[in-house]
Design a protein around this nucleic acid. Structure first.
Length: 669
RNA sequence: GCCGCCGUAGCUCAACGGGACCAGAGCGUCGGUCUUCUAAACCGAAGGUUCCGGGUUCGAAUCCCGGCGGCGGCACCA
C-alpha cells in the first residue's frame, strides 16, 4: 500500500468512526503532517471540526479531546497503524507500523503508471524573437517546464507550446535597426550571420545590442520612430521583402533561444506563430462566433464609438463603460487581446480552425519540434501529431499581464459558458529584477534615482539584463574548476558533462525555490552559490547515496541482498522503534515516501516551489542520516539492511524529485 | 484615483483551504566535527512585539476592517 492510499483509507476510517459515534461528520476530513516524527506520521484535526459541527447541529458543546479519544479506538484496529495518540488540544496522531511500512515500500517505484488521457496544454517561454533570452525569461521557462513535468508525473499527458510573436513591434524594432541603422538587406544579414558564427558569436546576442541601440535612437529620432509603424505594417501584411527579412531575423532568434533552453533541458512540442494566426484568419472565425453568441457588441456612441467591445462587469471603473474591453478598434484592426482570445480558443479546441504544421527542429535524440505554417504541407496530415484541443490550458506569463489574462479567461468563458473559466489558467509569476549592485556588476550606469530603489527592472529595450547563456557559462566554468580540483582523475570528457549538470542544477533550483509570487531580486552571489539551499546541495546528497551502493556492489553487497534480508525478518521494527536513532532512520524513510503527495500538492496549487522545498528537506535529512549511520561499516546485518533500504528509498525519491525539476544527478562531484 | 501583489531573524525566503512545547530554513556571525560510504557536508549557539491599530475565533503570520510603507497593472501598445 502506498502512503497516499494509506492516508485515504485512514480518512475514510475517521469519517466512518465519526458517523458511528456521533451520527455526523465534517464535510471534509483533513489530514496534516505533524511537525515532528515523535508526534506521529499523520495527524487529523477532525475532532475540532466535529466539535464545531456538533455545536451547530445540537447546540451541545463537546471537548475536542474527548471526541478524539472516541475516534482513536477505531483507527487502532487497523494493522498498518501501530498506535494512535491524542495530543495537544485534540489532534489525532497516527503512528504507522514502521516495520510493515518499510517492507512494503522497500521496492516501490515512484510515478504514475497510468495516463488518464486528458491532454493539458502548457504554454511557456514565448520570448519575443528579437534578442537573446535573459534570466527573467528563464524563470518563465523553468517554471513552465517544471510544471509540465509535474503534470506528467501525476499522469497527465501534456503538450508544450512556445508562442512565437514573430510579427510584433519588438521584431519590427530590430528590423528597423538592420534596415535603417545598418543599411542591410536580407543577404547582408545572412552574411553577417555567417561572420558571427565564424567568430563563435551568436545572432541573438548581436540582436540584443542592436535592439538596445534602436531603443536609444527612438528617443531622439522621430523619423526613425515613424519607420517602426511602416515596418510593422509590412511584416503583418506579409509577402514582401521586409516581411521576408523579418522572418529570417525572427527564425534565427527562435533557433538561438531554443538552443539556450535546450542547455537547461527545456524542450517544446510546438511553436505556434502569430503570423499564422493572422494569415489563417483565426480572428475572423473567433469574431463570427462572438457575434453569433452575442457576447460582443458594436458601440455607436461614447468614447468607444466605432469599436467592437466585450463588456466586463468584474472590474468596476468610475463610469461603467470604462470596463469594456475593445477587441476591434474603430479603424477596423484587431487588438492584441482579441487575437489572444482567438488563440486561446484554438488551444482549447473551440475555434473550429487549425494551423498547418511542419517540423522545425530535431533534438539530438530525434525528438522533433513542430512549427505552424500557413500552407498545407504533406507533413501536416501525414506526420504531424494532433496539436491543441487541450482539456485545460496553462499559460505561464508574468504577473504584470494578470489583467489581460483575466480578460482572455473571462472572454473565452463568456463565449463558451459550457467550458467555463477553470479551463484557462494563468500560471503567473513575478519578475526577476536586478539588485542595484548586480546592475553595477553588469557595467551599467545607475542613476541616483535607481540606486535608491529596492530593485531595477530588467529591460530588453535598454539592453539591461543578465543574459541566460552568460550565466550558464559562468556556472559551468565555476563548476568545472571545482570538479577539476576534486576529481582530477575523472575522464576528460566526463568533467565538462558533470560541470554542465551542476550548472543546470544550480540555475533551475535557484529559480524554483522561490514561490511564484516572490519577486526575485537577482544577485550574482546567490545565483552562483553551491552551498546551503541550492540545487548543488541536493545533487550532492544523491551522488553520495549512489556512491554508497557503488561501494557496496564492490564488496559484493547488492541492493537485492538487503531487500531479501528485510523480507525475511521482523526485527526491522525493533531498529526503527529504537529511540532517537530509530526515529532518525524512520524520518528519512517516511519523508522519502512523501514525494507522491508532494508532487500532487505542487500540481494542485500550481506551485513548483513546493517540490523544490521538499527536495531540499529530503537532501538535508539524508545528509544527517549519512553522518550518523555508516552503512558499510554496520556489523548487524538486519540493521545494515534497514539502513541500506532506507538510503535507497531516499536516493530514489531524490533522483525522481530532481528529475521532475529537470535536474540530473552526476556520477561524481 | 481605481484594481492587484507584498511587508516574517542582520540579509534572502518558508509556513499546505486559521491550530500542537521555542513562528521555520538558507546565507552571514560565533564555536565545534575529516586515518572510517565524497567536509559542495554535519553539529551547536546567538538572532523575531510576523509593519502598526482594531475586530472575528477556544486559537490569527494566516480571515475581516482601518492605517503606514514598497512594487506592479489600469491604451482604439504588444
Amino acid at each position: 500500500m502506498t502512503l497516499l492510499e494509506l492516508q485515504n483509507l485512514l480518512k475514510d476510517k475517521v469519517r466512518a468512526a465519526a458517523i458511528m459515534h456521533f451520527q455526523m461528520a465534517p464535510d471534509q476530513i483533513v489530514s496534516e503532517i505533524p511537525p515532528k516524527t515523535e508526534l506521529g506520521d499523520l495527524a487529523f484535526p477532525a475532532a475540532f471540526e466535529l466539535a464545531k459541527v456538533i455545536k451547530q447541529q445540537t447546540g451541545e458543546k463537546q471537548n475536542p479531546r474527548a471526541i478524539a479519544e472516541t475516534l482513536k479506538a477505531e483507527l487502532e484496529k487497523f494493522d498498518f497503524v501501530d498506535h494512535v495518540e491524542v495530543a495537544g488540544p485534540g489532534y489525532l496522531n497516527v503512528f504507522y507500523n514502521r516495520g510493515k511500512f518499510l517492507r512494503e515500500n522497500a521496492v516501490r517505484q515512484f510515478g504514475s503508471e497510468t495516463t488518464d488521457g486528458e491532454k493539458i496544454c502548457v504554454e511557456h517561454t514565448s520570448v519575443n524573437p528579437n534578442k537573446a533570452a535573459h534570466i527573467g525569461h528563464v524563470r518563465n521557462s523553468v517554471i513552465g517546464d517544471t510544471f509540465q513535468r509535474i503534470l506528467k508525473a501525476t499522469g497527465k499527458s501534456v503538450e508544450v507550446q512556445n508562442y512565437i510573436d514573430n510579427t510584433g513591434v519588438q521584431v519590427a524594432d530590430v528590423v528597423v535597426g538592420f534596415i535603417y541603422l545598418e543599411n542591410r538587406d536580407l543577404d547582408s544579414i545572412k552574411k553577417l550571420d555567417a561572420e558571427l558564427a565564424a567568430k563563435s558569436e551568436t545572432f541573438d546576442y548581436y540582436c540584443w545590442e542592436l535592439y538596445a541601440k534602436v531603443g536609444q535612437r527612438y528617443q531622439a529620432d522621430e523619423e526613425l520612430k515613424a519607420k517602426r509603424a511602416e515596418v510593422l505594417h509590412a511584416i503583418e501584411e506579409g509577402g514582401n521583402d521586409i516581411a521576408l527579412l523579418a522572418d529570417y531575423v525572427a527564425t534565427r532568434n527562435v533557433e538561438c533561444i531554443l538552443k539556450t533552453m535546450e542547455r537547461l533541458s527545456i524542450r517544446y512540442d510546438l511553436l505556434p506563430r502569430e503570423s499564422e494566426i493572422l494569415h489563417l484568419h483565426f480572428w475572423n472565425r473567433a469574431f463570427e462566433t462572438m457575434k453569433e453568441r452575442g457576447v460582443i457588441h458594436f458601440e455607436n456612441e461614447g468614447k468607444n464609438a466605432g469599436c467592437w467591445v466585450m463588456p466586463f462587469d468584474s472590474h468596476e471603473g468610475t463610469d461603467e463603460h470604462e470596463t469594456d474591453k475593445i477587441l476591434v478598434r474603430s479603424n477596423g484592426t484587431v487588438t492584441y487581446t482579441g487575437k489572444d482570445i482567438a488563440y486561446q480558443m484554438w488551444k482549447l479546441g473551440l475555434l473550429g480552425l487549425d494551423f498547418y504544421y511542419k517540423p522545425f527542429f530535431k533534438y539530438a535524440d530525434g525528438k522533433e519540434v513542430w512549427i505552424t505554417t500557413a500552407e498545407r504541407s504533406a507533413d501536416t496530415h501525414v506526420r504531424a501529431p494532433s496539436f491543441g484541443h487541450g482539456e485545460a490550458v496553462y499559460n505561464v506569463i508574468d504577473a504584470r499581464q494578470s489583467y489581460p489574462q483575466e480578460v482572455v479567461k473571462k472572454g473565452v468563458a463568456a463565449i463558451f459558458p459550457e467550458k467555463g473559466e477553470a479551463a484557462s489558467v494563468h500560471l503567473s509569476y513575478e519578475m526577476v529584477a536586478l539588485s542595484p549592485a548586480a546592475a553595477g556588476e553588469l557595467g551599467f550606469e545607475i542613476s541616483d534615482e535607481d540606486r535608491k530603489k529596492p530593485f531595477i527592472e530588467m529591460s530588453g529595450r535598454k539592453g539591461l539584463g543578465v543574459k541566460a547563456d552568460d550565466l550558464i557559462d559562468r556556472l559551468e566554468a565555476n563548476a568545472l574548476a571545482e570538479v577539476e580540483s576534486r576529481h582530477p582523475n575523472l575522464a576528460a570528457d566526463v568533467k565538462p558533462q558533470v560541470a554542465h549538470q551542476l550548472a543546470v542544477g544550480a540555475l533551475r533550483f535557484f529559480l524554483l525555490k522561490f514561490t511564484r509570487n516572490t519577486i526575485i531580486v537577482f544577485d550574482f552571489g546567490e545565483a552562483l552559490s553551491t552551498e546551503g539551499e541550492t540545487g548543488t546541495f541536493c545533487q550532492y546528497s544523491a551522488v553520495r547515496a549512489n556512491s554508497i551502493f557503488r561501494k557496496a556492489e564492490e564488496q559484493g553487497l547488492s541492493l537485492l541482498h538487503f531487500q531479501e534480508i528485510l523480507e525475511k525478518t521482523h526485527e526491522a521494527a525493533t531498529i526503527l522503534n529504537d529511540g532517537e536513532a530509530g526515529n532518525e532512520i524512520w524520518s528519512l524513510a517516511i519523508l522519502s515516501s512523501r514525494l507522491d503527495e508532494t508532487v500532487r500538492q505542487a500540481a494542485s496549487q500550481n506551485e513548483p516551489a513546493i517540490l523544490a522545498k521538499y527536495t531540499f528537506a529530503l537532501a538535508k535529512a539524508f545528509n544527517l542520516f549519512y553522518h550518523h549511520h555508516k552503512i558499510l561499516a554496520e556489523r548487524d546485518p538486519v540493521k545494515q539492511a534497514v539502513l541500506a533500504v532506507t538510503a535507497d528509498m531516499a536516493r530514489r525519491s531524490l533522483t525522481s524529485a530532481l528529475d521532475i525539476m529537470g535536474i540530473e544527478v552526476p556520477e561524481k562531484m
